[in-house]
Write a protein that binds this DNA or RNA. Structure first.
Lengths: 160, 160
DNA sequence: CCAAGTACTTGATGAGATAAAACATCTGCG
DNA sequence: CGCAGATGTTTTATCTCATCAAGTACTTGG
């Protein structure tokens, strides 16, 4: 609680005249959206640096172990037929391999190759380097933000 | 986007069990990404409910006044030739209008029609309705969250 | 006035998304 | 057991969105 108050104090000291003190729900939604898209663009840029589309990078990042095509579709929240093409392109570049499931002959498991693992590792590193954004928050502010966002999360994920 | 999440998750794997009062940078990023993802999917779903793609809805949302094609391209961070098609489709549905700029005959300003404004208003309402999440914050907490997020935004937009 | 720059469009190309349908395989129930 | 229905994958068609290259129309500054 005292953390809250001090955070507010610091904010009113640094916020300047432009900061609205009573944001509407809509303003908050728009701000969240703006930050979300900024993050997404960062991810896409890091992926592009290694010749990947963001979707391809997304798939590659999922492949910690073998994942069936259908499983990828579920993870990506998209149609299974869509995954075929994405994995085709990754496979053509040698970043990924299809192998038949030992337990179900209908299923093809997708596995990252060594090169695939290497590429996604580099994308991750680049993301970390890019995000100095949060360094502008001190420890208390970070804790405050985290606590507030965490309360938002469960309600917003209902549609997943 | 959900992979993006998991990627960040994996990146912060060394942090161990969550220490809620001292979140790491990566934990914060993960949380922001989680909320951003959920919100983006909600936005897309609300837009789809009115027969709009998320990109089309995004354009409509930008049209608070007349905006030149080139300006839209800048806002969307994409090629100008891309905007032509998006606005074509919106115009074909009567949600948007091109009108010549009075000051520069090269320029076409895009304006939302009454119907366009109505549709985007409904999309926004649907999002707000979906996100009772924000109702769990009281006024002070909302203001705190807004101020913190606002400080994050400019830093994250640096890379355009 | 004219060269260079800017705004927009067109056309080619490619990724990603969905829907419908084909095909092989698995599963459960009579 | 055997078959009907469900499931996993791919193909094909169609759309949107993204880029690049080129072309047209207009503006601007030397």
């Amino acid at each position: 609680m005292s953390t809250f108050l001090r955070t507010l104090d610091r904010m009113s000291a640094t916020a300047g005249p432009a900061a609205p003190h009573r944001p509407t729900k809509l303003q908050l939604l728009e701000l969240l959206a703006a930050i979300g898209t900024a993050q997404w663009r960062d991810f896409a840029a890091a992926a592009a640096h290694y010749g990947l589309t963001s979707t391809q990078a997304r798939v590659l990042a999922e492949l910690k172990g073998p994942v069936p095509m259908r499983g990828l579709a579920t993870l990506l929240v998209c149609d299974a037929s869509n995954v075929t093409g994405i994995v085709d392109r990754l496979e053509a570049r040698g970043l990924v391999r299809r192998e038949p499931s030992p337990v179900d002959r209908r299923v093809k498991n997708v596995v990252a190759t060594d090169e695939g693992r290497d590429v996604i590792r580099r994308v991750r590193e680049e993301m970390q380097a890019t995000h100095g954004a949060l360094d502008t928050l001190d420890e208390e502010e970070g804790a405050t933000l985290y606590a507030l966002l965490e309360r938002l999360r469960p309600t917003m994920e209902k549609d997943a």
